[in-house]
Structure formats: structure tokens, C-alpha cells
Write a protein that binds this DNA or RNA. Sequence first.
DNA 1: TTGAAAGCGATACCAG
DNA 2: CTGGTATCGCTTTCAA
Lengths: 326, 326
Amino acid sequence: MTDVAKLARVSAMTVSRALRNPEVVTPKTLKRIEAAIERTGYLPNRVAGSLSSQRTNVIGLIVPSLRNAAFVKTAQGVADMLGQRFDLMIAHSGYTLKGEEAAVVAFLSQRVCGMILHNTRHTPRTRRLIQEAAVPCVETGNLVSRPIEMTVGFSNRKAARAMTEHLIHQGYRRIGFVSVPLKENDRAAERRAGYAEALKKHGLAVDPDIMLEAEAGLKSGGEALVQLVTGRRKVDAVFLTDDVLATGAVLEANRRGWRIPDDIAIAGSDDDEYQQNVLPPMTSIRFPRYEIGRRAAGMVMDRVLGRPRRRAVVDLGFEIIRRAST
Amino acid sequence: MTDVAKLARVSAMTVSRALRNPEVVTPKTLKRIEAAIERTGYLPNRVAGSLSSQRTNVIGLIVPSLRNAAFVKTAQGVADMLGQRFDLMIAHSGYTLKGEEAAVVAFLSQRVCGMILHNTRHTPRTRRLIQEAAVPCVETGNLVSRPIEMTVGFSNRKAARAMTEHLIHQGYRRIGFVSVPLKENDRAAERRAGYAEALKKHGLAVDPDIMLEAEAGLKSGGEALVQLVTGRRKVDAVFLTDDVLATGAVLEANRRGWRIPDDIAIAGSDDDEYQQNVLPPMTSIRFPRYEIGRRAAGMVMDRVLGRPRRRAVVDLGFEIIRRAST
DNA sequence: TTGAAAGCGATACCAG
DNA sequence: CTGGTATCGCTTTCAA
């Protein structure tokens, strides 16, 4: 920057201004500076700038994993919303609270100017660190009433309850339930709770024998379906609370020649292209993943750009999409 | 840090050492420092550290988009390989060379210590900037012989040629070709070239009428298939060089009751769970997406950690997976 | 509108 | 093994 300043015959300070508030610099001076920047190939050093100004332009995003399309959609929303004004750092927690904590520490050390967590459960230390650092923070995912600061998401419990009730209204009485493993995953746990609530409300038995946890994957969804349908459990419908598991179940039914929904009804979750296009198209729950990312990013940016701190809980809801599989 | 130093009755310098080279500090002193860190809740400021040491621990990754699962798999590989030692910044180019350039400028300003680009074509300025900054850089994706510095990937052209030859050997003679739009996408262009090469080599006509560009998406793949099969084009096989397009084609054939491969053979690309599990399982090309991410990250880290600069071209190849759809 | 001086919070380097 | 001092490249603040 000194080089640029010399070449343009101004002080470094003026160069700095020209870069951030071109309008307060005389057009003539500005021209000279721009020419000098061009000639020297100068690239501002944001590390120095950040240290000096005590703020960065980096937003940190923590997702459980990049393997799950749902989180990636949210990340897309975040990335699109941030645009050129902010840079994006992404870390993954590996679905563990400790992993999340480690990522938070790393981000805080980098002095990110805002954080987005895809999770609403945290270790006490995670909460404390974020609060003490007073970094603008949005939690996404399962809606909670008392966020660290702001949250945007939907109620997994209500969504699962709504889908289960839909199945009950369609006349199904033995409804199997399949989710990804519940350990350290509040979202899956909430869905299971919603499912159970609906059954109880309608006087149906909550039978652990037909509530399965399955590893992520198409194959795994198919296996879960087979496990529920064969043997003596006699389910008439299966609700799989994961996009990939759900599609896997339908594809497996196709392979075995089971008719959907006559032999077995299948409902999915986190609607996507595949669920829409399999045979038959699947009843599912649509979650506004991308929109959540955009909103979360927007809320963080607002705070970074000056809006005062305020608790905020934004419920973006969900939608039950009825298709031919139920 | 000064607070910690005071509390531990040592200099700031010693605290700094304790954090980075605990082994050179007397155990007793170390204990005091650790206690002080605990008490003050001190979090190192990496911005300051980076400015001082003139190097960050941030690796920048640029992908065309987060919407394409293939790029996300590579990103996973990168993220997994980096582990805790480095932080990851992700930017997307929007599939344009100018977008990539903007992201490179942003990363260089952030003084990332290494960069991974998912692209091997760049604007002249992009190449120049990276070379002048002398930042360790790995390009992934379509293999080229003269990378900026290092590259790891596979030959899209060879892969497409191999698949086309496989179809020819199976006895197909009118082979339709579908890819995503070629504009600013060297990978898609290379595949088309490979397809054409194979046809020529076997004395088959290269007919632009049966070479389609389709927007990404399951629907779009189905439409392309229908367009090729109906009408008077009489293709006997279709090669779709995109995972989603390919699955979309099979699902559409299922809906219409077309028998695969008897009525129409379908080959895909970038093999994934879906292509494996549709009916019938699809012949496809397997690319080592995840491994590419790991290798790229490994190569960058090696350079950052001191291995000398050296041109490197790593071909991770591909594999033709034969299944029932052809 | 422009400039000079004083940090920002760490690390490098050299003494002790 | 520990400490002092200069410095990294920019922004803040205040004065001209």
C-alpha cells in the first residue's frame, strides 16, 4: 500500500480511503490512485485490515456434515445471500456437540463477524463462548424457543406429527417409523416425538418394535422397509423421516414388486427431486432448506451491519405434499 | 494475551510459545500459563497471529456451485483431509470464469495459505494472480497437462470415450448424447469430444441432431430422453453425462413403461447411489470425487508445510461400471 | 479533502 | 528456557 501511495503521490491513508470510501476522495486523486493500484498489482491485505479495524468480513457456517443434501441446501442459501460482501467459512461438526464446539472455537479465533449453526443444541461451553464473544449468531434447524440469539427453522416435531396424522386420516393404523440414529441428533429425536404424539392422540399404540433407526443411505432405507413389512409386524404404512431413506424404500419396493400404496404406503420427508420422480411419486414433507439459509444469512448480515441485538425466532414452517404413495 | 501473561507472571512471548510449542516451555511455567488461560477465558486472535507471522491457516476452495453433488463430494474430501489443522473457506464461481476470478481475488486478499480450484480453465488474470502470489494451488476436475502448479483429477474425454466405446461394443449404433450446457464448462465439452472421438474411430456418424444440452435436473434428463427416443431420430442408446440427468432418464422410462435396455439402453455418468439403485441399475462411470478432494487437500497441505514447489499432475482415473441398463 | 501518529495483538529475532 | 523490541499492513483518530 505504501508503494501505491508513493506512486500516486499521496499518503497511505488516502489510498485506504480511496478503497473504502471513494466518494470522499477528489476524483483526480482517485484516478491517480487507481492507476497506481493497477500498475503495482496491489491486493489489499484483509488480515491487516481486520486486525486494525477489529472486524472481519467472514461469516462462519457450521453444518453437521456435507454428506447430507439438506445441509448443503441451507449452505447454498447462505452462500447466495452473502454475495460478494462477505466471505464464507464452512466447518462440519460430524454430528457431535464436541465437534461443534471445536468449530466454534476455531471460528471465534478467526474472529468471524457472524456465525450460523445448523443445530439448536449445544454444549454449555459453546453457548457461553458465543455469548461472551457477542458474535451475531443464528441457529437453524429445529426451532427452539430460547435461542442463543436468533434462530430460523421449523418444528420437526410438528412436521412429523402432521405427517403421521395425515397417514392416520388416510386410514392407516400400523404405521412404521424410520429415522436416522437419534444420538446427539435433536432433529431426529423431535420427529420421533411428533410421530408418537400423533399416534397417542388418535388412540393408536406406540410400538417400539416398528420404530427403527437406520444409517443414512438408499440401501439402508430399503432394508428398513423390508424389515418392517416382512415378518409378523404387519405394518400398513411406513414413514421414513429422511429423504434418502425414503427414496431407498420406494426403490426397494419397486425391485420386489410390492405395490405402493396398496401393499404398503410409504411417506417420506425433506422432499426433493427424487421423491417427486420415483414411481409412484412420494408423499413427503417439504422443508424450506434453501430459504432458511438465506434468512439466516440475512439476519446475520443485518446484525453485522448495525441492527441492534435482539432475540428473534423465525418459523418458516413446512408443507405436507400429498402424492400417490399414500 | 497480555492479561494471561500477567496472571501467569511471564512475558507475552512465553505465552505465545506455550500455545505453539508447549515442549520448549518448562512444565511448571506451562501449568501456570494454562491455568491463566483457563481463568481468563483467553482465545488466541488468529488475525493478529496471521498478520505477524505472515501466514494464515486457511485453505480456500472454489467450486462452480454447491448445487451439484459431485462438487460437494470433493469438498467433503477436502474438509475431511484438512482436519483441525486448517480452516476451510468455500466460494462458488457460479460456473463462470469471472466468478472464479472474483473468488480468487477475495481469497488472495484474505491471504489464504493454499487454494483448491475445481476447474482447470481460468482467465489470464486468475492465472497471473495466483502465480504472482505464489500461493500453493491445486486444480481439480478435468485433467490438464500444464497446470498452474498442481492438479489432480481424471480425463473427462477419456472417460466419455470409454463409455461410448462400451456402448458400441454392446452393439448399439445410434447413440444419443446428453450433457449439461457446454458454455464455460470445459468438463462437459471434453466429454462431448470424447464421445465424438469414439464414434469416429468406429466409423459411426457424429450427428448433432442427437447431441443435446440439457439444464441440470431430473425432469430435464427425462425430457432429453423422450426427445431422443420419440420422433424420427431412432436412437438405440443414450449416454447422459451427468448423474442427475441420467437417473432422470431412467425414472422417465419407468413412468412410460419403456423397457431398459430392450427399448432403449441408458448409460450414465458420475455414478452414485441412485444410479445403483434404480430399476434397472444403471451402467455408469465412477469418478473418485471424494478421493480427489482428499488428494488435493493433501497436496496443498504438503506445500504449506514445507514441501518445495513442483509441477504435479495426478490422474486418479475412472471406472466404467457395467450394470443392467446397457 | 488530506496527512501524521498511534495502535490492533500477535510473532520473529536476538539477547541474556 | 525466557524476555525485550521491532514489526506485520492497515485503520482510527485527530489535526491541518
